[in-house]
């Protein structure tokens, strides 16, 4: 394999990893702070992808679709937290799994009712619809670079919010010890609502910007959900740093798995997970 090809694959792997991080960060924070296992998190990715498809076909622009769709997704996140998830805080994981599984069924069927079973595509925005030619046979689409850049900007913004602001301090403290944070007079309910809605928004945004890269199809959310579970488990539950490193790792493992062992590419990610957990059962940055 020539070095150029390898570096392109690394670029692809990192781009996929960054996208995974956007979704997994919400998942890991919801575990960490709300102590709720949310199987329906992938549904927000699916909703984002379908919003991108629907609004782009209406307005003709992915940018407008995101501007309109993102607030909708945030509102939906708030509503789900307020009406459903809040009832689960005091219940065990079993009940949480069951209720959020029920939510998946509802969201999936709503999607089928509204959009049917067809596979849809979202066009790449006109200004980014180009490729950088590297050699006679190899080129790299600009849109992938744009996606990576957007993800990186969001990761940086998230870092600033979590590490440098008072809100971020509350979030970090909440992930360590929910009760104590509450005792200190911080409104953990409002904090939980914010974290859940932000997580839902990030997942939906990931679905929107990824829509032009892959097609939009039923069940799209579940595939991404399980990969994100793997990311969260490898990184350690509740750890943003762990989720970031694990997401990049999984992105690379998936991309190189497809190149090196196409026959068993999908298994590669899970094999990486199994190896890491043999070494550290609580994940890379998890507390035992």
């Amino acid at each position: 394999m020539d070095p150029l090809f390898v570096s392109l694959q690394i670029l692809n792997g990192i781009q996929y990893g960054l996208l995974l991080f956007l979704i997994a960060s919400g998942l890991t924070l919801v575990f960490g702070i709300l102590q709720v296992i949310n199987l329906a998190h992938g549904s927000f990715y699916m909703i984002g992808a379908y919003l991108a498809f629907w609004l782009t076909s209406r307005t003709g622009s992915l940018g407008t679709a995101i501007l309109v769709g993102l607030p909708l997704a945030l509102l939906l996140g708030l509503a789900v937290e307020r009406l459903m998830i809040r009832l689960l805080y005091a219940r065990d994981h079993l009940t949480q799994v069951l209720l959020t599984y029920g939510l998946i069924l509802v969201f999936n069927e709503a999607q089928r009712l509204l959009f049917g079973n067809d596979v849809h595509g979202v066009p790449v925005p006109e200004i980014f619809n180009a490729s950088i030619r590297l050699t006679d046979t190899l080129s790299y689409p600009v849109y992938r670079l744009v996606v990576s850049a957007v993800c990186l900007a969001l990761v940086f913004a998230m870092y600033l919010v979590i590490q440098k602001t008072r809100l971020g301090m509350h979030i970090r403290a909440g992930a360590v010890d929910r009760e104590t944070v509450q005792l200190l007079g911080i409104n953990i309910k409002a904090l939980s609502m914010f974290v859940f809605a932000a997580g839902a928004g990030l997942a939906a945004l990931a679905g929107m910007i990824a829509a032009p890269l892959s097609s939009v199809y039923p069940g799209i959310g579940e595939h991404i959900l399980i990969i994100c579970f793997v990311v969260v488990v490898i990184g350690g539950i509740g750890s943003i740093k762990g989720a970031f490193i694990a997401a990049i790792l999984v992105g690379l493992a998936d991309t190189f798995g497809k190149v090196l062992i196409p026959e068993f590419a999908s298994v590669a990610v899970y094999a990486v997970m199994a190896l890491i957990l043999l070494w550290r059962p609580q994940g890379l940055f998890g507390r035992a």
């Binding site: 296992i37 994981h93 399980i226 539950i237 026959e263 999908s266 899970y270 059962p281």
Partner: peptide, 22 residues
């Protein structure tokens, strides 16, 4: 145990799914 067990069993189930799928 707990959340880890739930997610790990899910991941291993998926691993077998893909193994037989591919």
């Amino acid at each position: 145990s707990g959340i880890y067990f739930i997610m790990l069993t899910l991941a291993f189930g998926q691993m077998l799914f893909y193994l037989f799928h591919d």
